[in-house]
């Protein structure tokens, strides 16, 4: 009896804990942001109005302000910024994948002892602050920075290349900063692949490249998806990289959010932007999840 009881308790804990976690760290903050997005900005502490108040005995007045979402729809600058952010994230993710896949593959197939060293090299940059690493790129890409000085010295170019404060610099910063997030899940996936499958393919006369395309690549799909998500989602909302390396005109949703939050003190509009961004990101995520489930369903 008591055994069954404790069993049920542990099951409840097992299922309940993740939900509790999600509720505390995702749902609750989300509801708070949603609440602010429906308020109006005001000059006070905190700088937004209350959604409800008791006006007289027993009368609760609720005021929902939808003007923020309306403004987001009407003013095309927000849509432009969103599309541009998605584009930067897409290009960044594709670059990370093209660079990261061969690296992850090489690490996964390296001898055991060297693997640890190579992994260390991937993780090592994390020991320095993200902000400092992005700042370092300013020093590298500057007109009188390391790269230009070196190329000028080599005689490859006659005058400094203008890279800093362009879109190119943003891509460089994004790929540099997020590459490990692509490599690590890919590596985790690739090391778990059964090498006998490739041997079987070779025995059956399949050339290595074809075996890669037909065996390794499809089986590493979960790693590709996980890595792409880990890169794509944070890059869409990225603020530091476009702010430090980008051109003054580069519109990114993160920068707009900064303006609304800090310069305009319009927390409600900034919250509305955050809600829209979340909605835009959740949809493909759910679709991808569904696709993967279907995939697993057909395989079993």
């Amino acid at each position: 009896m008591s055994h069954r009881h404790s069993h049920r308790l542990s099951r409840l804990l097992n299922i309940g804990l993740p939900y509790f976690w999600l509720g505390l760290f995702f749902l609750l903050p989300f509801v708070m942001v949603l609440r602010i997005s429906l308020a109006e900005p005001t000059l006070a502490q905190p700088p937004y109005t209350a959604l409800w108040e008791w006006v007289e005995q027993g009368v609760l007045q609720i005021r929902l302000n939808l003007a923020n979402f309306q403004l987001l729809r009407e003013d095309d600058i927000y849509l432009a910024a969103l599309l541009n952010s998605l584009w930067v994230a897409l290009v960044g993710t594709v670059c990370c994948l093209l660079l990261g896949y061969p690296m992850a593959y090489a690490i996964a197939t390296a001898p055991e002892r060297r693997r640890i060293l190579l992994l260390m090299l991937i993780i090592l940059p994390f020991w320095t602050s993200f902000l400092i690493r992005v700042y370092a790129w300013i020093g590298l890409l500057n007109a009188n920075g390391l790269l230009n000085t070196f190329l000028l010295w080599l005689g490859v170019i006659d005058e400094p290349l203008k890279i800093l404060h362009t879109q190119m610099a943003v891509y460089i910063g994004v790929v540099y900063s997020y590459l490990p997030f692509m490599i690590l899940p890919l590596y985790a996936n690739l090391t778990r692949l059964d090498p006998t499958l490739l041997e079987a393919a070779a025995d059956l006369g399949c050339r290595p490249f074809r075996a890669f395309l037909r065996v390794t690549l499809p089986l590493s799909m979960p790693g590709i998806v996980a890595g792409s998500m880990l890169v794509f989602i944070p890059v869409v909302g990225e603020f530091v990289i476009p702010d430090l390396l980008g051109s003054p005109g580069s519109l990114m949703i993160g920068k707009l959010m900064w303006t609304e939050f800090f310069a305009n003190k319009d927390w409600p509009l900034a919250s509305a932007l955050a809600i829209v961004l979340l909605a835009v990101l959740v949809v493909p995520f759910v679709l991808m999840q569904r696709l993967q489930q279907d995939d697993e369903g057909t395989r079993t």
């Binding site: 900005p41 003013d75 600058i77 432009a80 003054p248 005109g249 519109l251 303006t259 305009n264 003190k265």
Partner: peptide, 19 residues
């Protein structure tokens, strides 16, 4: 006023983005 400031700031974002 807060409203004037926001109008100015949004105009500024637009100007910087060259739109």
């Amino acid at each position: 006023s807060e409203r004037e400031l926001r109008t100015l700031n949004r105009l500024w974002t637009r100007l910087k983005a060259n739109r």
